[in-house]
Nucleic acid binder design. Structure first.
Lengths: 282, 282
DNA sequence: CGATGGTTTGACTTACCTCAAGAACAGTGG
DNA sequence: CCACTGTTCTTGAGGTAAGTCAAACCATCG
């Protein structure tokens, strides 16, 4: 709060600490260490570590809030069950992220969360966190900041889900997943393993697996993307980005980008070429 | 956090305080007063009060975070503008609620917010808040709790928007708005003034004004609801609730409820008269 | 009073869903 | 290593809820 505008790209890639390399706890603890200079607290906080097998459930709807879960390794999903039995995916959580922030308010989890892959996590007990916040203002600010960021993230999600078509949502989701997985773009392409089944991805976006599949196939036919099973390679990140950040059906604009024609061919600043006019008119 | 499971119905209806009756600040300050017993702090915090006229913009996308805005009176909307010029409504904010939580993370507002009606608000400066959190652990917990609740609320919203059809979303939104407006249900019916235009309501839910309108008309023809302009009367809250909490198209179930045949005969205590039954049948 | 913006209504289109069947794939055990 | 099972993914045909476009309607207001 007193520390102002932080850059979005400045993520929580902390340097290698004793515990939890590349994770938030070390970041939280960094604040502590600045004051304390001791690793004892870190040990105390992260003493409740455990591993999860794929499919194992971390907690169910209605469970009381025990503390925050920090993911060291693996991917989790949290979801609600609708009365027709279908899963509505609320979110996926990746290494270095916290699970359970929303339960701090009510003291009760309102969703189920299970592991999508083998995972290592550690529980930061609520009491410990509270003590820490009492003692170190920086920790307090950091925790509030993280929670507020979560609100912001969800607000963006709201926009993305409400305003856009399936194509855009999917593009957005894939890029977001790649980013949160921390994969590097090598040679202008992004390769990663999709951590979840397509049903889950679809449910997350409010789509059906069928539409998801069709969309992927279409992109593959264009050459934007290649998938074999869960191995994904985004060959044209720029095109996907363009798709993700577009509400209306400006089909031609994307194709132009794909072909490599720059913005300022026919379109001084409105971005409308004669082709689009023909398409969009009526 | 240390205080466990709170009831959801236990809202922020605080008793009349010196400043801001029925609002969060007094709740926050209650914590302070427990310790301090003085109203001076309250005065200091709420000294930045001002009024807004309808349509006036509180802040724009990209504005730096100054502090939280507390609404004493009136309704605000926050929205983003997509490149096609359309507004994507992120949320509406009602009296007693805070605006700007999400900006605490990044230090920068990512959305525009304007007043939908004449409003009285007050700014709680970030520095003041920070100081308060430093001094009073209860305030610190309360603020974190409120932010976490916001996350939870948005997670519910995600589910509602993704999993359901227009009908359900609209039902949910209307009931939610009525609740947040704090309107009482008199004689089994809920009457209130819709604070926003239908375009806004539609944009909020990811719909078009047309679908919204059609839906309302359909309900009106069934007798669930009556609207004249922005005056809304929900005649059958139970039916609307049933609609809201339903994913699949269990048409018959709702009609059954509407007709009054509940699990047990025609609900002795639901307050349905014969006239309504005659109207609602078929 | 006409002008303006919000709301309703209708005819038409379409993106997405539903249902259903195949194809690829991953385990499992012989 | 290969058949065998279940699961996940793809593909197709057809239906429908919601979007789009356009016009009429209705308040409110200067």
């Amino acid at each position: 709060m007193s520390e102002k505008t932080r850059n979005r790209s400045e993520r929580w890639h902390c340097g290698a600490r004793r515990v939890c390399p590349k994770c938030i706890i070390s970041n939280l603890l960094t604040s502590v260490f600045l004051v304390e200079g001791s690793g004892a607290l870190a040990q105390q906080l992260t003493r409740n570590s455990f591993s999860m097998t794929v499919g194992q459930t971390l907690r169910r709807e209605g469970d009381p809030f025990q503390g925050l879960i920090l993911i060291r390794k693996g991917v989790l999903k949290t979801f609600m069950i609708s009365e027709d039995g279908g899963e509505q995916i609320i979110d996926f959580r990746f290494p270095g992220e916290l699970v359970g922030l929303s339960a701090m308010g009510t003291g009760e989890h309102m969703a189920c969360t299970i592991a999508l892959s083998a995972a290592d996590v550690c529980l930061i007990r609520a009491e410990d966190l509270d003590d820490l916040c009492n003692t170190y203002p920086d920790v307090r600010r950091r925790l509030l900041e993280l929670t507020a960021r979560e609100v912001a993230r969800r607000e963006h999600l709201h926009q993305a889900l409400c305003g856009t078509r399936a194509e855009c949502r999917l593009a957005m989701a894939l890029l977001n997943i790649a980013e949160r997985l921390g994969v590097a773009t090598v040679d202008h392409a992004i390769s990663f393993q999709l951590p979840m089944a397509r049903v889950d991805l679809a449910a997350y976006l409010g789509l059906t697996p069928e539409t998801t599949s069709r969309q992927l196939r279409r992109w593959e036919s264009h050459g934007w993307l290649h998938t074999r099973g869960r191995d994904f390679t985004i060959r044209e990140p720029d095109v996907l980005h363009a798709l993700a950040s577009r509400h209306s059906s400006d089909e031609e604009g994307v194709h132009r980008l794909a072909r490599g024609d720059s913005e300022c061919q026919w379109s001084p600043d409105s971005g409308l070429g004669t082709d689009e006019l023909a398409v969009n008119r009526r």
